[in-house]
């Protein structure tokens, strides 16, 4: 039986853009970036939820909201039925022990003045994960867990390669024995051959420690490989969410289709990448009315420019936010 670990309801977050002096004088209203526009999803114990989308779509913002780096303007995030932004819980640091995050940039996510050993030891001792006497042994165990040699403990971050740094970041996150890991573009900055090592490690650790993982990435092949379920985000909204295999083999939303076909295949004979999107991602400063995707959509109809489509369950598919999903599926 599965149990819901994380539940996100109607999450919205706007960033105010600071107004220039000219704007103030002309009394132009301040602009807002709509980073998240009503995102709802849930995560089950032990599963990997992939989150894909292009840069600026809000996927990293979502990840950062979950670990309370940002506070949403609207909506709720519930971890085991506890609202994580509730007044009596928002400063509860025990939450940080149970939900951890790894960051994209392996060159900035570690304090350059602390050795790998100090970084891991700090996490262990602040949260009193072990009695002080046992901390060195536990630190050694964690290095072992992420396949780093024991002499790594004495080294500063600049002495490691990108892949090794991400292993240290994983060890730091695992030090507090979390249930949920948020991996924000964990391997995007790494070389292909090293990516595979880190992804393997993550999958193995998940199995061993029964972790729930949110894998945020823009590389569809990787997301497909690691995820049980996948959410596709476009301009702060989920446009499609469902079982990984069915979503990838049979995407329903025109944006998911385009995203999939845009990823170049390593097989030179596989030239199926036929769907080309017109235009670019609109600025989140200026989200189009109706379905945000309609300006690039090859299937748009009249009501797409008017009504915002809601996520709805479609037979043989996942949940899709598209007015014309059935027709598109029929004609495919």
């Amino acid at each position: 039986m599965t149990s819901t670990v994380m539940e996100i309801k109607d999450l919205a977050l706007e960033f105010k853009v600071s107004r220039s002096i000219v704007d103030v004088i002309r009394r132009r209203p301040g602009k807002v970036v709509r980073a998240l526009n009503g995102v709802s999803l849930h995560m089950e114990k032990g599963e990997t939820l992939g989150v894909v989308g292009e840069s600026g779509c809000g996927k990293s913002t979502l990840a950062r909201c979950i670990v309370r780096l940002y506070e949403p303007n609207r909506g709720k995030i519930k971890f085991r039925n506890q609202d994580i932004f509730a007044a009596d819980f928002r400063n509860d640091r025990s939450y940080n022990k149970r939900v951890q995050m790894m960051f994209q940039d392996p060159y900035s996510s570690l304090n350059p003045r602390m050795t790998a050993g100090q970084i891991i030891t700090e996490a262990l001792s602040v949260h009193e994960m072990r009695p002080p006497a046992e901390i060195p042994a536990r630190m050694a165990e964690l290095l072992d867990l992420v396949r780093l040699s024991q002499d790594a403990a004495e080294k500063l971050p600049h002495e490691f390669s990108g892949g090794q740094r991400q292993r240290i970041a994983i060890a730091r996150a695992l030090a507090v024995e979390p249930e949920v890991l948020i991996a924000d573009e964990l391997v995007s900055a790494l070389d292909v051959s090293v990516q595979a090592q880190v992804v393997n490690l993550l999958l193995e650790l998940q199995e061993r420690l029964n972790l729930t993982i949110m894998f945020v990435a823009h590389d569809l092949r990787l997301v497909r490989h690691v995820s049980n379920r996948v959410a596709v985000i476009y301009l702060g909204r989920i446009v499609e969410i469902g079982d990984s295999e069915s979503l990838f083999s049979n995407p329903a939303h025109p944006y998911s289709q385009a995203l999939l076909s845009a990823a170049p295949s390593v097989d030179p004979d596989d030239t199926s990448g036929a769907i080309r999107l017109e235009g670019e991602l609109p600025s989140p400063l200026n989200v189009p009315p109706g379905c945000a995707f309609h300006v690039r959509c090859p299937y748009k109809t009249e009501n797409c420019t008017r009504d915002i489509p809601v996520l709805r369950l479609i037979e043989n598919m996942g949940e899709v936010a598209c007015h014309n999903a059935e027709e598109i599926a029929k004609n495919a």
Binding site: F103, S108, L110, V126
Partner: peptide, 18 residues
């Protein structure tokens, strides 16, 4: 603070002082 190690500290649940 633009570096992720600062965000990582927040996520790790470290005190502001630390």
């Amino acid at each position: 603070m633009g570096n992720d190690y600062a965000s990582a500290g927040v996520v790790m649940g470290y005190s502001d002082r630390r």
